[in-house]
Design a protein around this nucleic acid. Structure first.
Lengths: 329, 329
DNA sequence: TTGTATGCGTTATCAT
DNA sequence: ATGATAACGCATACAA
């Protein structure tokens, strides 16, 4: 910058004003801009950050980017940030509480302007001095939590199965013991079953149980090669995918014998086919809402919990209504 | 820091030394550390970066994180960087040349220590002053390029199809006109076919052709419901996936009538099943190599091109050798 | 061994 | 409107 001032024959202050678009004599501005071009000058955002303690950087804490749900979330959050001229520091925690904590320290050092976190450490207590938005997990009064409307999603799954002719359904999940919004999927499903008068069972696995426990469960409900359930609601598309493999192995046809609905709206290769009929999370809206909430410092009142509407998508593992398959949007 | 010095009753220089692990009187060190604890002090990496012009930050330029291949790459690069105490600035370009260029500007301002880029803009010429490592695309003499051994992968696919009984095979790709390493897949496949004495065809689509063109091509080679080819090598798993859908629609059985091999080693849900039999790219090794190359400033000679070995994985769309399916590793 | 002073690149305040 | 100067937080060379 000093060099630019020298080259243009003006003072530093003038250069600074030109850069920041402050009013300055036209002839001076042109000279400075020419010098900037000539010297290929770029402002040093570290010096800016030091001076203004504003870095236009947001940290995203997330377990990984391999999981397609997380991957899409990262993508949309990145896009939302970019639109607002913010950059993203990606922090993958691998579900490790220690790493989540460690990254919180790093963000303190790196003076990010805010943090978006999809975390699992119940002991994690982010600094109150830095804006934080949580995804899926309520973290306290002063931290907004953004999630899908999981309860409505559960209800929707129940209603759908009922409408498609199911009489006897079951809910399958592998259970995080942690208090988190997705837990409401079960409550919503129960409620939906009640409304529709569906007979309802459930099997909940612990985090470290093998998925084959589901097969044991299903075989317990198999009589004469016929499954007691004609509809299954799985807590995620991934579980649904594994369940479908198990069902096929048990010589049960999907959706003819058993209809399956998952949750998330994951697609093959990111934007290909759904793996199963599913309750689709509005990932883009979640991303946008997180960024919005994080950066709107002066929002009079930060809502403690924002639930975004989900939708149903046909993915081949339910019977089609009126014989018309809904196309992927 | 000033506060810490005050709290501990020492000078700033002493605090700095304690932080950086430089020798200092034991009693002083304890006092300073206590003060740091008490005040919850964290170094300001922006001030550090300003002083040392070293930021421990690396930028990753990549089209998106939705594509599973990119997603895994991001994940492993992030892990590799983390191991070395570096942070990652994620820059998703959406295949947009303008954005790639724009991000290059941002990285200049942000004074990152290096850039890893998987880019598509042939006009992109990164600054020579900042370390740059390219993935899959050669970008000039002073920029190392890391890729899978695409040629060997092509050969491997041909050899595999031959060993599994194919006589008449075809190569299917949608063609980037850009000079990039994955283009060698075709050359390797041709070479492999030659070695094994396979009859060889190919269909190359332009970037904006619809995938349905492949169906047209295949139907042109369909006689009496029987396809002329008994083996297909697709340039990516995604193409393979779409091709398999087309084949099924044409009432051809995979792998009984036609065997299909893809490229990349993509799995459902990140670490589930392969979508097809495939040539697996060593994504973790690629990530590690990129980071290694980028940070080893004093590597006597930066190699212009590093090719990492690929492997074959059975994914259900080829016949199994000796009746034994290879499990996913 | 410890403390002090200077500069890194910017921005903002203040005289000019 | 423009130019000089201080301060942001840290590291370091140098003096004590």
């Amino acid at each position: 910058m000093k060099d630019v001032a020298l080259e243009a024959g003006v003072a530093l202050g003038t250069v600074s004003k030109v850069i920041n678009g402050l009013p300055v004599g036209e002839s001076y501005r042109l000279r400075v801009e020419a010098a900037i071009q000539k010297l290929d000058y770029h402002v040093n955002s570290y010096a800016q950050g030091l001076k203004a303690s504003k870095t236009y950087t947001v940290a995203l804490l997330i377990p990984n980017t391999s999981n397609p749900f997380f991957a899409k979330l990262v993508h949309h959050i990145n896009t939302s940030l970019m639109k607002r001229n913010y950059r993203m520091l990606l922090c993958t925690t691998d579900y490790d509480s220690r790493m989540e904590q460690e990254y919180l320290t790093i963000t303190k050092q790196n003076k990010v302007d805010g943090i978006i976190g999809l975390t699992y450490n119940p002991e994690l207590h982010p600094d109150e001095t830095i804006p934080f938005v949580s995804i899926d997990r309520p973290m306290g009064a002063h931290i907004p939590c953004v999630a899908s409307d999981n309860f409505a999603g559960g209800q929707m799954a129940a209603a759908k199965l009922a409408d498609l002719g199911c009489k006897n359904v079951a809910f399958l999940r592998v259970g995080s013991s942690l208090d988190s919004e997705p837990n409401k999927r079960k409550a919503g499903f129960e409620n939906g079953c009640l409304i529709k008068g569906l007979s309802f069972s459930e099997k909940i696995l612990q985090d470290d149980d093998p998925l084959s426990e589901f097969e044991v469960f299903l075989r317990e409900h198999l009589f004469d090669g016929k499954l007691e359930f004609d509809g299954l609601f799985c807590v995620t598309d991934y579980i649904a995918y594994e369940i479908i493999k198990i069902l096929r192995k048990m010589n049960l046809r999907v959706p003819e014998d058993v209809q399956v609905i998952g949750f998330d709206g994951i697609r093959a290769f990111g934007d290909g086919d759904y793996f199963c009929s599913t309750i689709v999370q509005p990932i883009m809206d979640i991303a946008e809402m997180c960024v919005e909430l994080l950066l709107q410092e002066h929002m009079s009142t930060k809502p403690p919990l924002v639930c975004l509407p989900v939708s149903y998508a046909y993915g081949g593992t339910t019977k089609e209504e009126g014989g018309i398959a809904k196309e992927r949007k």
